[in-house]
Structures are given as C-alpha cells and as structure tokens.
Computed example of a mutant assay.
Amino acid sequence: MSDTYEEPGILYLRFRKVGGGLPDSAGYAGLLALLGAFTPVVEAAPPDGALADVRGALRYFGRDAAGLAAVIRVRALALHGVDCAIGAAENPMLARMAARRAAPGMTSVVPGGGGAAFLATEPAVALDGVGAATARTLCGYGLDSVGRIAAAPLATLQRITGVRTGRELWERARGIDRTKVVPNAAARSVAAERSFPRDELDPERQHRALMSLAEELGARMRGDGQVCRALAVSVRYADRTGYSTLTRSRTLREPTAHSAELTGLAYRIHDSFGLQRARVRGIGLRAEGLTDRERVAHQLSLDPVDERARRIEAVADRLRARFGPQAVMPGRLAA
C-alpha cells in the first residue's frame, strides 16, 4: 500500500476569531468537536490548529476537499464565530504548508501529485525539519530553495546533513510525508498570545509582552515535565490591507523550559522582523517540538548566575503552584 494519496484528503485548519485573536480553550474544544462530526480522525494542534483526515468523509458527503472545507468553514463561523484558513493536500506536511498560504476564509488546495511543484519556490527554511542551522548549511551549498533541494542527488544531501536527515529532506522536498493524522495524539506545541488594546508602537512594551508569554509557557512546560526544541513568534500588525501576521521560528541551542532562555530567543526573533515603528496589535509565542524533560540532556553550565537563576525559578514555580500564577513575577513585568 502506498504511503501517499493521489487526491487531497488531509485538511489542516488554522482558527482565528472574527475580529482577531485565538479561540479560548472552550471554543477550541468546540471546534475539535465540530470536526469530529465529519471524521473521527482528528489531531489537535493547539492553540489554533487541527489536522483532519477526511478521505472517508469525502465519499460520504459526495464532495471534494475544497467543497467539504467550505462546509466546515461555514459551520465554524456560524456556531463559534471563528474563521478558518484551510490547507488541503494528500499528506499532513503539505496540508500544513498550504494552510500557511491561505488567508482567513480561504482554502489552498495542493493537487494530488503536485507537492513538488507546490514547494519548489519555498525557501529552504520553510521545509519541515529544516531549522536555522540546517538552512545555513544548505544555503552554503547553494541549496537555498526547496526546489533545489529536491533536484540535488540524494547522496549529496546525505553527505551534507547525514544519512537519515538527508533522506528525510530529499523526500519532503518532493512532497513526500510518511506521517499520519493521529487522533488524541499528545500536543506537539503549546502557545499563548497577548493582544494590545490599541496599536502598540513601543518596542519596550512589545518585549514585555514577549517576556510575559515566555514566563507563562516556561512555567506551563515545567509543570508538565516538558521541554521544547524551538520557538515561533507571531506578530499581528497594521498595514495597508488592514492587519497582517508575520511568523518566524528558530531552534533553541538545546531543548529547554527555562524562561530566561525562552525570553532571550523570543527577543531575537522579534528583533529580526525589523518592524521598527510598526503598529502592533498582538503578539503570540509558540513552543514547538515538545518532549519529556527526562528524555533530553542538559549541558551543565559553569556560570553561577545561570545556575542561581534556575534555582530561583524552581522556588518561584512552587510558590505559584501554592499561591497562584501572579504570586511571583519578574520585576520588569510588575512595574
């Protein structure tokens, strides 16, 4: 049996409340239940996404992927006040990347067998599994786009990135993804968002929002015994068309849930946007690649300041667990 499908049968949905913002936890649960009315094969991608394998539903409802996506979008809007940007493709990777191209209220469909052509013009860093370090290595060999990665000999990619990674990149660049939609799978990411009451021009206040988000996600991961491998920052800002959203992610130097590490990387990603005096309405932070803390190693530091900060963080976590999340916070946030 083939690991890919000839026709689009996988949907990736990105949820956004009408007027901006992410659905709350109850609203998100309702959206997952809505998808469950179409197919039992639904994988949550909190806080604003979900994967759904609708191949059986296409036959049942007598519609193609775009037609079924339109029905889902209308119900999400009518019942939950949420608009959806939807990607439809033959596998989860292509569906996710198609959803990134789709505007709210739109569906981007990758035709069956058209994955390689769809990906060809994307930069190397946009490909699943390619972080900033791998992208720099690939670009150093002239492989700066997915199309060029796909055209490179497999042996060349394996010499550059290693046997296993090279094989995975070679397949993904051709639109091949061997993962499945896994119902009730453990969350692979965790995210939070801050909205400003009005367009915010002050970079300092934007940094304070990022620190608050990093503290929140770090405490949540530490409480669950998890660490993350990468961070993604999303900035919603005003432009000529109304509001647009920029998202950029980077890999951490090692998996961590340490708030100071998360904050530092979040600042660097935010500064890399070069927004300067942009009118920012909201900022989001997503911790990606979650894994159990016991499954990764921490490089011991000889820096006494770092070790002291981690001990203080552990004490603060215990105080928050006993007296509430506002019991202890950085002085910069309390000001």
Rank of each mutant, 00 (worst) to 15 (best):
A334N: 09
Y12P: 01
P92R: 03
E294K: 11
V163C: 07
A57K: 00
R320E: 09
A335W: 15
T121H: 14
R100V: 00
G9V: 11
F15E: 07
K180Q: 15
E193P: 04
L217I: 05
T179R: 14
R322P: 05
D239F: 06
T291E: 15
Q226E: 14
D144K: 04
R310I: 01
A85C: 10
S301V: 03
D53W: 15
V227M: 00
L252G: 06
R174A: 05
S212P: 00
A57Y: 00
R295P: 06
I312T: 02
R159A: 12
V235T: 04
L231V: 09
D306L: 10
H258Y: 15
E307A: 10
P8T: 14
V182Q: 10
A238D: 07
P123I: 03
D271G: 13
V328C: 09
R14E: 11
Y5D: 11
K17L: 11
E200K: 05
G242D: 10
A57Q: 03
T247H: 01
M221A: 00
S195I: 01
S25D: 09
V296P: 07
A133N: 14
I149W: 14
E168Q: 13
R159M: 15
G223W: 11
R178Q: 05
V54K: 02
A37Y: 06
D224E: 06
L154F: 06
E200V: 09
A334W: 08
L143T: 09
T256H: 04
G331V: 06
T245S: 11
L302R: 01
A124D: 00
P183V: 08
F15V: 11
R308A: 14
Y60V: 06
V125Y: 03
A186S: 08
R208C: 08
R236M: 11
E307N: 10
K180A: 15
D177L: 00
G142I: 07
P255A: 00
R310Y: 12
G112W: 00
Q206A: 07
A186I: 10
T107C: 12
L79I: 10
